[in-house]
């Protein structure tokens, strides 16, 4: 079968891009709230205001001359992450995991100099990684020390959990594991491994890389079946609270599990991708329509999470 029949896809409840854009993003995400999620700095400040845990901000570089000011600061740091505030698709994220003399070690193991970092900052400020090439701001934040549970599951970079939250209800989740071929990035189309997670339990359902089911991590060989995310309910709660925080009906929340600080919100995405369906082996559409039909949505995140855990189990909807 080289092409799937559209009717079978629809029957399987698979959400297509046009449908996502028109029926969900277009209808539930008001344009004026976009800047809050498109700008990571704003998201961060908002998260702090709403008491949603996020990695600590080290510094913000807004202008070219500020780059020389942060030099000393960076030299003193062992690990950090530099992100463009309005980057898209994981572009322009530089993760430094350690130091070797004057060199900075990237998550991929490559060593780079301070000059390279400064150039990266310059590029970021000039808007190279931002959505429309607009001048941008660079955020330097604490590197997540990921939880031991994920030891050996991610080749480079941070394993993060993507949870789709629709009208405040977590509807589908997956664990994204960076691989060598994804260069430490967690985007599935770049070659990261996606592990579908059961909303009810936080256990893994299946794992895919490049849309092909796999059983072990391609780089580390760790088995991907029977994983269980610790502190699952708290993670769903964190995701669910992002609804009130962002005012957006259909969002993708990217959450990481820090060794000491627990679940941390990395970023929000107002146009979350569709490959989460592939990782879960099931379509989003039935769950989204189910939530759409709820007349009286639950008021608190706790109620919504409880409802979702009950409704969206692996054997349920």
């Amino acid at each position: 079968m080289r092409w799937a029949s559209p009717f079978k896809l629809y029957k399987a409840g698979i959400l297509g891009m046009n449908c996502r854009n028109v029926d969900f993003i277009g209808r539930y995400n008001l344009r004026r709230f976009y800047p809050l999620v498109d700008d990571k700095l704003k998201t961060k400040l908002l998260a702090e205001e709403y008491g949603v845990a996020t990695p600590a901000l080290i510094s913000v570089v807004r202008t070219q001359h500020e780059i020389s000011h942060v030099e000393e600061r960076l030299m003193a740091l062992q690990s950090f992450a530099i992100k463009p505030s309005r980057g898209s698709g994981g572009k322009g994220i530089l993760v430094i995991t350690g130091r070797r003399d004057d060199y900075f070690v990237k998550s991929s193991g490559t060593e780079i100099t301070l000059e390279d970092i400064k150039r990266h900052l310059t590029n970021t400020l000039a808007g190279l990684y931002s959505l429309r090439g607009n001048p941008d701001v660079a955020i330097i934040e604490d590197l997540i020390e990921f939880d031991d549970t994920f030891e050996g599951y991610s080749y480079e970079g941070v394993p993060d959990i993507r949870i789709i939250v629709f009208r405040g209800y977590p509807v589908m989740a997956m664990l994204r594991l960076a691989t060598h071929s994804s260069d430490g990035k967690a985007n599935l189309h770049q070659g990261a491994v996606g592990v579908g997670l059961d909303i009810a339990t936080g256990r893994s359902l299946k794992a895919v890389q490049f849309a092909v089911p796999i059983e072990r991590h391609p780089d580390t060989g760790k088995p991907l079946i029977d994983m269980e995310i610790p502190d699952w309910e708290n993670m769903l709660l964190l995701a669910s609270r992002c609804y009130e925080m962002s005012n957006l009906g259909y969002i993708g929340t990217d959450i990481v599990l820090d060794k000491s600080r627990g679940a941390q919100l990395l970023e929000l995405n107002a146009r979350p991708g569709l490959s989460i369906q592939v990782a879960n082996g099931r379509g989003l559409l039935p769950r989204l329509r189910h939530i759409e039909r709820i007349r009286k949505p639950h008021k608190t995140a706790e109620e919504r999470v409880a409802y979702a855990m009950q409704t969206f189990s692996a054997s349920g909807l």
Partner: peptide, 22 residues
């Protein structure tokens, strides 16, 4: 066309693996 909510032709290939696994 801006109101078209059906699948794109490319998605018929992208998601074909999901039907195969069922």
């Amino acid at each position: 066309m801006g109101q078209y909510t059906g699948y794109k032709l490319s998605e018929l290939r992208r998601f074909r693996a999901m039907l195969e696994q069922r």
